[in-house]
Write a protein that binds this DNA or RNA. Sequence first.
DNA 1: CGTTCCGTTGAGATCTATCAACCGTGGTGG
DNA 2: CCACCACGGTTGATAGATCTCAACGGAACG
Lengths: 245, 245
Amino acid sequence: MRGSQPHCQTCSLNALCLPLSLNDADMERLDDIIRRGRPIQKGQLLFQQGEQFQSVFAVRTGALKTYTLASNGEEQITGFHLASELVGLAGYDNGNYPLTAKALETTTVCEIPLTQLESLADELPDLRKQLMRTMGTEIRHDQNMMLLLSKKNAEERVASFLLDISQRYSRRGFSATHFRLPMSRVDISNYLGLAVETISRVFTRFQKNGLIETQGKEVILHDSDTLYELAGLNSDSECGHDGDE
Amino acid sequence: MRGSQPHCQTCSLNALCLPLSLNDADMERLDDIIRRGRPIQKGQLLFQQGEQFQSVFAVRTGALKTYTLASNGEEQITGFHLASELVGLAGYDNGNYPLTAKALETTTVCEIPLTQLESLADELPDLRKQLMRTMGTEIRHDQNMMLLLSKKNAEERVASFLLDISQRYSRRGFSATHFRLPMSRVDISNYLGLAVETISRVFTRFQKNGLIETQGKEVILHDSDTLYELAGLNSDSECGHDGDE
DNA sequence: CGTTCCGTTGAGATCTATCAACCGTGGTGG
DNA sequence: CCACCACGGTTGATAGATCTCAACGGAACG
């Protein structure tokens, strides 16, 4: 994102990331324990299901997907993680990551070692609250996904998905109507519990109806209102994901 | 459960409930802030979506379901809560309950007021860890549900469900093969993302194949191994829910 | 320039939802 | 005591949405 060693204090994402509710002094202490590693390339793993749980990560640039493996080997994508969003907190309850995180494109992350995060949380009530809030947000997101997966049809799911991504980009200051999807159609279909072909068909149907315009991964939302209606949401409510893990 | 005022220290559920990892002194302090209310009757609400978030609850006896309302009014059941399990932590991230909790039968709960829980957590690192762990467990559960809802067919879902309930009863010292489902078929169908009729058909099919035996809400598992196979699980792994919210 | 991966489109198969009827139980009231 | 009703659960027939299988086009890449 910037040249030498970046810091939370100067990071353009700090208003969205874990430092969210921290004052300057606290942020500095958080900054001290964060490790900034090499970028990881598309397709590489950040951590793997079953590995020992050692760190939580914040996406600085790029995007990740997280997925669990069923015992039959099928993968279920549980979330996409864009810049400023946390990854890995879902595994907090025991010693191993319950899911795998893979880069969708070249990605840089901030690594926050768990032991240090825990001892810092012991001292900083605000950080603690922020962590709990982030986990609560993740639970809300997952429960919205459960609703989507068990009650919505293909068009509703795709509409919800597009609006979710739109809102998340918008929150980071990017266009809410013109963006690039970092994940493949296959990933989208897996996430939404549909076949790839169904995703493709819904995209073209939406395009024919003038709701969206797509060219590969580039998407333009032309009629967000109708999309919101389709998704079964009001335009000011959440639609699946809330930005943090 | 018992006559006058019960206490965490003597509660038969304390090895499964929030006091899980607390020492005696800490448990006593937790015990002090817990309120034991009147039993709530079948169909009554413990709390409602949108209400101010004030307390977390532990089920002492009976059972609850929690569900969210989509904007079209449809309800999506996100979990069932048996004795010793926590309810309400899912809402931790903001000021309002994001879901409703309704009693499936006459139910008694321990109420833990949030403000007091928070200040107690400020002092007791073990309690804090326990809370985080519980939330992490809930996230894992929800992600397992996402997998179930997007990848499993009707038989696999029902098998997973029955084994989940079985494990949870078993953990509380009850039979893993002979139990009573506290929820209706409609609730099960809603939870599993299927039509009631499908649930009914799968139950009878399982019964014809000698896998289970049912009479109304009473269930006997005759062939857990095949059920585990169907569910796509090994018999020692989790299958959806892990006991705590 | 060939290969591979990804996305799209078409035709047919399949699972589950839907609609409808029926049954047993429990509660209510005449 | 019995008729009646409401409700939950079961079963059958049909319809529909999505999956599966298959083929094709284009972009990316070595």
